[in-house]
Write a protein that binds this DNA or RNA. Sequence first.
DNA 1: ATGCGGACCTGTTAGC
DNA 2: TGCTAACAGGTCCGCA
Length: 271
Amino acid sequence: MPELPEVETTRAGIAPHILNREVESVVVRQSRLRWPVPAELKAKLTGCVIQAVQRRGKYLLLTTGRGTVIIHLGMSGSLRILGEAEAPQKHDHLDIVFKGSSLLRYTDPRRFGCVLWTQGDPREHRLLSSLGPEPLSDELDTKYLFTKSRRRAVPIKSFVMDSKIVVGVGNIYANEALYRAGIHPLQPAGKVSRLRYEKLTAAIKDVLTEAIAQGGTTLRDFVGGDGKPGYFAQKLDVYGRGGQPCNHCCGILKEVRLAQRATVYCARCQR
DNA sequence: ATGCGGACCTGTTAGC
DNA sequence: TGCTAACAGGTCCGCA
C-alpha cells in the first residue's frame, strides 16, 4: 500500500504524539510479519523515550537512547495513534503503549511489513545499508541517475523502482513520473538520454512532493497517522486508468504487466 | 554485476 | 448468488 508519500504522511502524523514519550509496554499479538518481531523488542523498548521519528526510504525509524525501532508498512500496513486501548481487530498485530495510556498501533492484513529492533546506527542495518539516495534530497539529480543508468538494460520503470538506485519510488509514482517526463516505461534505462533524465528527475520530485502535500494517495482504506485519508488519488494521470483516454492527447492509455506490476502509459506521449 | 522470478500473506474484485 | 482466479500499494532473496 504505502509509497513514500504515505509513509511520510504517517511519520508526520504520529511524530507529535510519540516524541519525548516514554514507552510503558509493548504488546505483540502476531509476531509473524515479513520477519519475526524480535523477541527482545518488548524488553529493550520498554522504558525508552522516543527521541526522534525519522524516515529512510519507506522505513520508519523510532529512535531511543538504547536503540531504534525499524518499521516497514509493506503493502497493507498502517500505524495509528489511539488515545486509549480499544479492542484490537484481527490484523492489529502490535501496540507500543506510552505512559499516559495512549498508544501506537500497527495494523497489517497481508503481513508484508516488519517491526524490527536494532542497536547502533540504523543506517548500517542490513535493510538500510545499501539503499540509494532520498528522492527529495539534492543527492538525487540528473547526473546521478544518468551515470547510474549507463549500460543498464533493465526497463527504465524497473530502474527507478530499484531501491538501490533511489528509494521511495513505488509503482504508482513510477508510472506517474514516467508519464510526466514523456518516457516509455519499457525503454532500456541505459538508452535514455541525459536530457530525458533531467525531465524524469524533476518529475519524480514533483510528483512525490505534490502527493505528500495532498497527504498521500488513498487506495482502498489507507489512512495516515491522524486517521485522515489522502487526496492524491484524484490527481493520478495514468495509474489505474488503463483503457481510458490520456489527459494530454486523448489516446487510449495502454496497460501492460512489467515484473508483475501494473504498468500504464500513453504510447503517443511516452517514447 | 545484472536481471529475473519466486516468495511472503490476506482481502477484494472480476469473471464465469 | 456462489465459487475461483487474478490482482493489489513492497522488496528481499536466491539463482542463472
